[in-house]
Write a protein that binds this DNA or RNA. Structure first.
Length: 477
RNA sequence: CGCGGGGUAGAGCAGUCUGGCAGCUCGUCUGGCUCAUAACCAGGAGGUCGCCGGUUCGAAUCCGGCCCCCGCAACCA
């Protein structure tokens, strides 16, 4: 079995505060990364920030600051997530990093050398009122929603295009040869039918005079790369590609044995499982091994949005539930790949039931009962069984946690049945026997929790050692 | 006939691929317990599985039709 493991999240675009959907994505990746380390793999866990493009350029100008200063500030905010959610990522790539820009240019050259890039007239609709380009999807009734009735101008400019259409067969072959290339299956079906319907080439550059905030196109001073082409390259630039070929093959893999696991939200299905793979194929590089597509998070049945005012941020969650509480809630909010629904009310209920009353209270009970005992504990070596490993590999982490919580229930019942507080008074031997099982179970739980809730795992171990009472999760009103 | 997802107990969901007693968590009701974070344990109530039809010994599950809700519709992270 290969000893190296590679996983990457998508790179969030730095024009807003970190979104809880991204927090969920990166926590899932974190658990997987920690898990693979336990299995003895050398892990590269990549994340970072996507920092080029029109929106950022505009925002920086509005704020009256240099674009680089603007993205520096935001990139730091995203890097803060590491501490906030106790993440174990090894790489944090920024698309404004010099080595990344060079990699993006090299990828461009290879795609170009293989004949997949050409120049074409590109028509854009331009709203004079906003002084902005508008896409069809932004229009309402053929007009700009901010300036209804005002005819849009058609501007033509020459852009570079990527021959996405020429990669259709290769993509379909990739999908055919890898029946689990995209998970869950329904998303795989979606992208397959999208590709089968036929692909259109897309523009991958912008005129520098209009939008200079991007990676310069090789051998053309007038154009910069369109943000997607640049940003997607991060997954390999983070490995030192193209300079460090050895590292690249070790982690990203080879054409015969791809090794990269990607995780993304469903809004990224096309970009990650079709566009990016097509770019790799065009450059004759190995594709990803597997792309996991997560659903969206809604609040009380509604879309989470600023205009509705129901946004739940990861920062607020950590303030309320702590690091591991937040990790637990994000991991157990529902089935991977489905849209999940959250709310403060539901999260508080789950937090109280599972963490405070469940694991937390059990720990208190056991610690208190074992206060005056000195027992030899058998440390269990086995961490996860085959079934659990399978669940982790398909990101069904909620089910793994559910199984761990079965032990919590079982032990609560065991305490109820054996009444150790009575045994302590009249049956020393039996008391020791009962406590031995409970302590071993709790120790076992703490082992199992390492990838999911590293801090809690440590706290339980420490409590078992020192016999000092500990409130793992304060009950909420 | 644009593409896709969903409709299962008061709430949130699993189960549908591969047909076999309708399940989980929360809430609720009743009882028990006192080691523990007003925590814990047991038992109960609660569902025409969106609707109609078909296949089958048997359908939440397979097939056909319909209704309702929600995303996306390509260069938008």
């Amino acid at each position: 079995m290969k000893k190296e493991f590679y996983i990457t999240t998508t790179l969030p675009y730095v024009n807003a505060e970190p979104h809880v959907g991204f927090a969920s994505e990166i926590v899932l990746a974190d658990v997987r990364a920690r898990f693979e380390r336990i299995l003895g793999k050398e892990v590269i866990f990549n994340t970072g920030t996507d920092e080029h493009g029109l929106k950022i350029w505009q925002k920086a100008r509005e704020a009256g600051v240099e674009a680089q200063d603007y993205v520096d500030e935001y990139a730091a905010k995203f890097d803060d997530l590491k501490e906030m959610l106790e993440l174990s990522y090894t790489n944090f790539i920024r698309t404004t990093d010099e080595n990344h820009k060079k990699a993006a240019q090299e990828l461009w050259k290879r795609v170009d050398d293989n004949g997949y890039i050409y120049k074409k007239q590109y028509k854009v609709k331009y709203c004079v009122g906003c002084e902005l380009e508008k896409t069809d999807s932004e229009l309402v009734d053929r007009y700009c929603p901010l300036h209804p009735g005002k005819e849009l101008e058609i501007i033509e400019e020459e852009n570079y295009f990527f021959k996405f259409s020429a990669l259709q067969d290769k993509l379909l072959e990739l999908y055919k040869n890898n029946p689990e290339f995209v998970v869950p299956n329904k998303r795989f079906n979606e992208i397959k039918s999208f590709v089968e319907r036929g692909l259109e080439d897309f523009s991958i550059s912008r005129l520098k005079t209009k939008m200079p905030w991007g990676v310069p196109v090789p051998n053309d001073d007038d154009q910069v790369m369109y943000v997607w082409f640049d940003a997607l390259t991060n997954y390999i630039s983070t490995l030192g590609w193209p300079g460090n070929q050895e590292n690249f093959e070790k982690f990203w893999g080879t054409v015969d044995a791809p090794n990269a696991i990607q995780i993304a939200g469903k809004d990224n299905l096309r970009q990650q499982s079709a566009m990016w793979q097509a770019m790799l194929l065009a450059a004759e590089l190995p594709t990803s091994k597997q792309v996991f597509i997560n659903g969206f998070i809604g609040v009380d049945g509604q879309k989470m949005s600023k205009s509705i005012g129901n946004v739940i941020s990861p920062t607020e969650m950590v303030e309320n539930f702590g690091i591991d509480g937040t990790r637990y809630l994000l991991l157990t909010k529902g089935t991977f790949g489905e849209d999940n629904d959250i709310s403060w009310e539901k999260m508080t209920a789950k937090y109280n039931a599972d963490l405070a009353n469940g694991l937390g209270n059990l720990t208190s009970r056991v610690i208190k009962l074992s206060e005056n005992l000195n027992l030899e504990i058998e440390k269990k070596e086995i961490i996860f069984d085959e079934a659990s490993i399978k669940l982790v590999e398909s990101f069904d982490l909620d089910k793994v946690l559910e199984n761990i919580w079965l032990i919590v229930r079982e032990d609560n019942k065991y305490i109820e049945d054996t009444k150790p507080w009575e045994l302590a008074k009249n049956n020393e031997d039996e008391f020791k026997k009962v406590m031995k099982k409970l302590i071993e179970d709790l120790n076992f739980i703490s082992e199992l929790l390492i990838p999911f809730m590293p801090e809690t795992s440590e706290k339980i171990k420490k409590a078992l050692e020192t016999k000092e009472r500990v409130i793992l999760f304060e009950r909420m009103r």
